[in-house]
């Protein structure tokens, strides 16, 4: 009897140390599993950001052809430069100025080097400054999508010619241009200054950015005041009864309703019933406001609820609702703004 008790308390016995090893192992296991889980999450994040950056960064530069070119007087009327033949001008810039001695039968393929928008870039330039007509100036013109990709190294030169988007000859001509120093790769301002386009090399985000900004503005103007008003009411004034309970449960549920359901609400109510026009930022913004409202209310309530200064000034606060609004908001301004 005493023996067995002693054995059980013998910390150095082999069984006991085996047991201890097992416990330590399971501790180690759990710890490594946790580290493994976090590493997986970090790895996913790194992969996400890495793939975004590596596939996205070339969009921030734009390949340009930078050449000295004469704005040919014969192609346009100085009185009315808008109607000039800028298509021909763009063609001449490539064929005459740059690829001297190139195969002239191939003229049409050569002009493919420039973006379809290049003629309009030239037109806008001349229209803005008609004095340029007849002068020789430096022009910067975006090159077409395929050449843009080639210059950015996104077009594999080892692909068999028949399935490549550019032929060997086209690549050769473009390489001559690059060697001649006529190709530059500046920052792609067009990405922010242009609206969407059928031509990838000149497509930009301007329309999308403006649309988002309008929708956000409407959403903010609606949901921010309403959300804060509701939060202050629920946190400070609402009596504890069925109705305020209902409102609270309701808000928590709304916060978890899928966004697509809010979309259906906006479609049915604003567009279907009220007959508002489609695709206007106002309707989108209102729908977004309804969607963000519960989140704003919850965040604002969380921000104003533990306000200690209020309890310190309770006697004053209970006397005057107006001071309670000010107190509730003034101590916690930065939080609801987030």
């Amino acid at each position: 009897m005493t023996d067995s008790t002693a054995a059980r308390h013998d910390w150095a016995s082999p069984e006991f140390s085996a047991h201890l090893r097992k416990r330590k192992r399971s501790e180690f296991m759990l710890k490594s599993l946790g580290i493994g889980a976090i590493s997986i999450a970090f790895g996913a994040l790194a992969l996400l950001i890495g793939s975004l950056v590596s596939t996205g960064y070339p969009a921030f530069t734009q390949t340009h052809l930078v050449v000295e070119a004469e704005i040919d007087r014969d192609l346009m009327d100085p009185e009315n430069p808008r109607d000039g033949n800028f298509r021909q001008l763009a063609r001449d810039i490539v064929t005459n100025r740059v690829v001297l001695g190139a195969d002239t039968d191939n003229t049409d393929r050569l002009t493919d080097i420039l973006s379809n928008r290049a003629q309009f870039t030239l037109r806008d330039m001349v229209e803005a400054n008609p004095d340029l007509i007849g002068e020789t100036v430096e022009v910067r013109l975006p090159v077409a999508d395929n050449y843009d990709q080639l210059h950015k190294g996104m077009l594999d030169r080892d692909t068999p010619e028949e399935i490549r988007r550019l032929s060997d000859r086209e690549i050769e001509i473009f390489d001559q241009l690059v060697e001649g120093g006529f190709v530059a790769k500046p920052f792609n301002w067009a990405l922010f200054a242009n609206a969407d386009s059928r031509f990838p090399e000149v497509a930009g985000l301007k329309g999308a950015i403006i649309g988002s900004a309008y929708a956000l503005l409407v959403c903010f103007l609606l949901s921010f005041p309403v959300g804060i008003g509701a939060a202050i009411y629920l946190e400070e004034f609402a009596p504890k009864n069925r109705i305020s309970d209902l409102i609270e449960i309701n808000i928590n549920n709304l916060a978890a309703v899928p966004s697509v359901v809010f979309g259906l609400l906006g479609l049915a109510v604003f567009i279907g019933w009220f007959g508002m026009p489609r695709s206007v930022p106002f309707v989108g913004g209102m729908t977004l406001a309804l969607m963000t409202l519960p989140t704003i209310i919850i965040a604002t309530r969380a921000a104003i609820s533990p306000s200690r200064p209020r309890s310190a000034k309770q006697p004053l606060a209970s006397a005057r609702p107006s001071s309670r609004w000010c107190l509730a908001m003034s101590c916690r301004w930065p939080c609801p703004a987030s």
């Binding site: 009411y233 004034f237 305020s244 309701n250 709304l254 049915a268 109510v269 309804l290």
Partner: peptide, 20 residues
């Protein structure tokens, strides 16, 4: 005004249920 702000949340739910 604040009460009506809080009630907006209820109307949103009613709107969702009604429209759907």
């Amino acid at each position: 005004l604040m009460v009506s702000c809080a009630v907006v949340a209820i109307f949103v739910t009613i709107g969702i249920v009604a429209s759907l």
